[in-house]
Design a binder for these strands. Structure first.
Lengths: 139, 139
DNA sequence: TATAAAATTAAAATCATTTTAAATTTGTAA
DNA sequence: TTACAAATTTAAAATGATTTTAATTTTATA
């Protein structure tokens, strides 16, 4: 379920998170941008409008969101943790040329025989390659 | 295709990699242990027998292996890159209790409609949860 | 208004990885 | 065998993302 921009504050309250200004703006950024930003990107984008913002707050807030299952971390590449406010299971494709991350739908319901006795709490699917746009630009 | 222990040296030669002692031992460790070790684990395990070994060599060697498609990196968790000498596509399950990584078979052939115009070069599937053994120990 | 709890912050610490430049080893041609 | 160039390995320093710490600011409420 995607969060809508209108009700960020109520949404946070429903998750028992106090909707401070920083939290609202960070979640709003995650939802609106929908680009799976890094901490650096979030911080840089918001520090202009929230001059007192610190990176620690961005880290704290994202950790809070993850604990509340509002956001999830995308570790498609070490050395660049990204964050996604879309919790529903879907795949991520990273373009090795432009660096963009694309979402795609993929069925992850199928039961895995070997994991029958395991308790699965999280599934991630990461693809890499070259996106359509970058392929076009090459010709 | 799994590499067998007997022919590590020939295998490296077939990939146009000079089979130095460090390279042979590191690849051997990856193949035999089959536990998706971190750089730290590889280094610690081998430095006793190869006292001059340095971590930089482990890093260099793993990078070399990845470039030659002999090994792949598993970034199921930022802050702990792991390495796998099994290149065939398969899924990885990480137990949040004991930290072990399990392999499992999963069909990754299915074409994704949304990525039809994309060039896919790498697919990763990461699951997390609690493994069977840790679930048993809890009761 | 006072006060305690929560949120935010800057600065320092940590730690995996990369870079750099030097030292060592290896292969090969003379 | 010897000498030299290339490849490999190395230690040390640099980098950079993240975490920790401890202090400050903000918020809610009595």
């Amino acid at each position: 379920m995607r969060i809508s921009i209108d009700n960020i504050s109520e949404f946070l309250l429903s998750k028992h998170i106090k909707p401070s200004y920083a939290r609202i703006r960070i979640l709003e950024y995650l939802v609106v941008k929908d680009s799976h930003p890094t901490v650096e990107e979030i911080y840089s984008a918001l520090v202009g409008e929230i001059p007192t913002l610190s990176k620690t707050t961005v880290y704290n807030t994202l950790k809070l969101f993850m604990e509340a299952d509002i956001a999830r971390i995308i570790t498609i590449e070490e050395n660049e943790a990204r964050y996604d406010a879309d919790i529903d299971s879907h795949g991520h494709f990273k373009c090795n040329e432009c660096g963009r991350i694309y979402d795609f739908h993929i069925d992850m319901q199928k039961e895995i025989e070997e994991l029958k006795a395991f308790k699965i709490s999280e599934k991630s699917v990461y693809y890499k390659g070259i996106c359509h746009e970058c392929l076009s630009n090459k010709n």
